[in-house]
Structure formats: C-alpha cells, structure tokens
Amino acid sequence: MGNPAYWSAESVTDQLDRNLNIVVLMGGWSSERPVSLMSGNGVADALKDRGFTNVTAVDMDRNVAQVLAGVRPNVVFNALHGTPGEDGTVQGMLELMQIPYTHSGVTTSAIAIDKELTKGVLVPHGVRMPKGKIVESKSLYEGDPMARPYVLKPVNEGSSVGVAIVTDGGNYGHPISAKAEGPWQHFDTLLAEPFIKGRELTVAVLGDEALCVTELKPKAGFYDFDAKYTDGLTEHVCPAQVPDNVAKVMMDMALASHRLLGCKGASRSDFRWDDELGEAGVYLLEVNTQPGMTPLSLVPEQARQVGISYGELVERILAEALEGAKKTTGATKG
C-alpha cells in the first residue's frame, strides 16, 4: 500500500529546503477557531523544531490576502478548520495568488464539507453511509422527519458542531420544542439521519495510505465537540479492539473515500459500527479534509502508532503540497 518513496522519512527530509518561506494559516472566524489555533501553533512549533528557519504563523482575518502578499510565502500550511478554510474558499484564494498549500483543493473541499454532496460522490461507488434527508429546522416543531432515534446535524460543519441525537426519552419534546436548545435554533436547514447504534471509530489517511483504526469512547454522552477537544472526556483506543476484517473494511472505505473525493495530504474518515451486524454494520459518517493537529487530535495519534512522529507528519504533508505544486506547474508549462 502507498508509495514507498513517499513513506521514506529520509526522502521527505531531503526534498525540503529548510529556508522555505512557510506560512501556517490558522484561526479564522468559524466555530472551530479555538481548535484551529491549537493545530496551527502545534504545526508552527514542529516546523521550527525541525530546522525550518522562516515560519510565520498567521491568524487569519478579513485582510488575509493582503497579509499573504506581504509575506510572499513559498507554501501555506493550511491549519484552518471549518469555513472558510475548509470549504474551498481559502483554497480558491490561494490558487488565484499562485501559492501552494497543504491538504485538499477547491473542488474536494467544497464537496467534502457538505455531507449531502459527499454522499452523492461516495454512495454510488459502494461506500455505505446512513440514508439521510435535508429538513427545514422550523419543520421539526411540527413533527419528526423520521422515526426516533435519529441524528440532526448541520450540513456543512465539522468537529461534531451542532449535533443532536433525538430519542424517545430525550428532553427535546414531542415534537421538538422551539425553546429546546439545539442546532435547529442556529441553522435554517439540517441533515437528519437514522441513528446508528454501536461504536464510534475513525481512520486517518496520509498521502495514499490508511494508517489504522481508533475507537472513541466518550466518558459521558456522545462524541461531540467538547468530547473531542477536552482532555480526559474521551478515551482513545488505538488501535481499536475490533475484528481484523472489520478494521480492514473501515481502512479500505477510508482510503476509497480519500481517493474518490480527491483528498490531498491527510484526511480522516469517521464511522459508526453496529457490532451486532459485523462488516455490514460499518457506516461512514463523514470525511474531514482538514483534520485536527492538536495534541488530542486523532491523525497525529494514529501517525505515532505507525511510527511517524508529529514533526515528520507535518513535513510529509508539506512535502506532498510542494510536490503537487511542481506537477501542476509542469503540466501548465507543458
């Protein structure tokens, strides 16, 4: 699996100039800003620790294009999460400015941030995902869109932002009360999906190889934003204690999704597994094209599991971005 040259730490190190002018783009104004700042600062520190002498951390504001024009970087490490850094907007700006950048491009980002568009690409190719429907939030005050239990989530947010599980015994009401706190108060439309009982798992893909499977065991409730990014709220079991055939299904599905969507650098695919159904109980929930790079993040954890340090992980992502830029420039010139 994967490209042996890509996986050679020595080859990655050799091809990177330590005097590269690198901008680490972080922050922004999405709901995931705090996570992005942690990711970006971690990346910037790692690059400096590995000998890169010209690293600038940029907390993105509305004048980001002017800032980048002043710094004139050779490459941008995109450590943004959520919109506009994960939906193709920033990617389009960087394309116009002819600045190479890490992770996925414009089209992939625009599709993957939208859960319904993602289904439209992946499901026809055999990737199993929950059947869902887009609902107007105000319609929830009149009745349920499907049988309970079901999940409501924003169509284009990540990190489990605004997710609600609606159950018969829940406190949202029958039907959902307009006064009950939930995503219906913050988004005009939502994606409704049947709740998949069972276990929460995730698979990171780096370059063109699935790393391993991690099981996520929240100590209370479900794996929401707070559980993801608050130390001690979730137990990570890495590698997950699941049958080999189930782990293979998830890793194959994550890699296929990465390829079908055209992801670059690192991606992370999140799953639910109904362990009473074996392989048939594996469902892909979403693909994250800008996975977290914080100390609690899953991609660095899985990288460590397969022998890749945090610093090397950052370098590999950077190296792929520069290599992709070379190929694009060569194709344009040709």
Rank of each mutant, 00 (worst) to 15 (best):
G82W: 13
E200G: 06
R72K: 15
S139F: 05
T53H: 00
L68C: 01
N74R: 09
V205L: 12
D17C: 11
R72A: 02
P34A: 09
L47D: 15
N171S: 06
N63M: 04
G169V: 13
T107H: 07
N63V: 07
Q290A: 14
A79R: 08
R18S: 14
M26W: 03
R199S: 01
G162E: 00
V287L: 10
G330S: 09
G2W: 05
V155H: 04
K138T: 07
E235H: 02
R304D: 06
N19F: 03
N63Q: 01
L285C: 14
E323T: 05
A164I: 15
V24S: 00
Y310W: 14
K133M: 11
D14C: 09
E279M: 08
P100T: 10
G262W: 02
V75D: 14
M250F: 04
Y172R: 09
N78Q: 02
A5R: 13
T294C: 01
D188G: 09
P130I: 14
W7S: 14
W7Y: 15
L68V: 04
L191S: 03
G92Q: 03
G292Y: 07
E200A: 14
E95H: 07
H258G: 15
P295Y: 06
T56P: 04
N41Y: 05
G40E: 00
Y6P: 02
A303K: 01
L201V: 15
D114N: 07
N74W: 09
V151N: 13
T189W: 11
E301I: 02
L68G: 04
L190H: 10
T107R: 13
L206D: 09
M1Y: 01
S269G: 10
D49K: 10
L261W: 05
E323F: 13
Y141W: 06
V299Y: 02
G262A: 10
V299P: 06
M38Q: 00
P34M: 13
G126K: 05
P243F: 12
L255Q: 02
E200Q: 14
K228A: 11
F52C: 08
N156H: 13
D17I: 01
Q91G: 08
G307H: 09
V135D: 14
K119L: 10
E142R: 12
L140G: 08
L37R: 06
W7Q: 04
D114P: 05
H81Y: 03
Q290W: 03
A321S: 09
A280Y: 15
T118S: 15
L96Q: 15
P183F: 07
N63D: 08
S269K: 00
T118I: 15
E320A: 03
L260V: 15
Y223S: 04
G182W: 11
Y150G: 05
